[in-house]
Design a protein around this nucleic acid. Sequence first.
DNA 1: ATAAACAATGCAACACTATTGCATTTGCAA
DNA 2: TTGCAAATGCAATAGTGTTGCATTGTTTAT
Lengths: 136, 136
Amino acid sequence: MESASLLKRHGLRSTPVRRLLLEIMDATEHAVSHADLEQQVGGEADRVTLYRALNTFEEHGIIHKVLDREGVARFALCMDNCSTHTHVDEHLHFQCTVCSNVYCLPIEHYPRVSMPNGFNLVRLSLVAEGVCKRCN
Amino acid sequence: MESASLLKRHGLRSTPVRRLLLEIMDATEHAVSHADLEQQVGGEADRVTLYRALNTFEEHGIIHKVLDREGVARFALCMDNCSTHTHVDEHLHFQCTVCSNVYCLPIEHYPRVSMPNGFNLVRLSLVAEGVCKRCN
DNA sequence: ATAAACAATGCAACACTATTGCATTTGCAA
DNA sequence: TTGCAAATGCAATAGTGTTGCATTGTTTAT
């Protein structure tokens, strides 16, 4: 029932596919790829519908997308209060080199870097590689 | 002539396509995508040959690959002395939101982050977004 | 200089991720 | 309950990247 109200809060229609997607992501501690979702959803929905639902979620700040080191998108629920206009995303994306899972890890002091002359920094992303707690 | 000796130094055969690729990347200040290279090479080489040459270069530490925010690979010559086994890559990858070009920028103090328990950090990458010096 | 050995290339086919158009179904509000 | 806009399913398409195999080219040893 949580997913239905989450959708409504963002002015989105509550459909079976959307609720299912949100519940899968809520139950998964790591970011999930489209292929993961497609497998878990099974024949319940078309591939294209998943893509469109995920894009809609991202535009409304419900989830965020991170590309793994193969360039494949993985999706995770936003923990902070993101919205369409303010998208707070100050955490670290960690991909395990063993299981390939991507984790959104909190980080206490987000690093600041100084840019060379002429380059205006808008956003800095941290992408880490290593071995996750389950594969250790 | 520089590209030929660079190839020889890494134990690679000196072929026209490889020399051409290296010269293009040497003459470009930002990382180039496969599509960029394909366009500049023109009909001189097959697409697959470019992919294979770039993979070979990366394996030998001649170039490094960075994925842009669309997940597309971009390639740039390694400035440090990388080899097959030691791949030094401690710089920042900056993608301009206007022209989409990716620049490898030097960084004075590479940030260090502490990981949650159970997560072993192997490599930390910095990916920045903003406006480059030419688009400013 | 030449030939053999092996690596690089070209071509065709394929896998995968992602998007678009259009007809149909569904959710929701009046 | 009905109408309308939004969401979905299906087919087709684009883009990136890989693999197999025959052919060409580079290098090494003679």
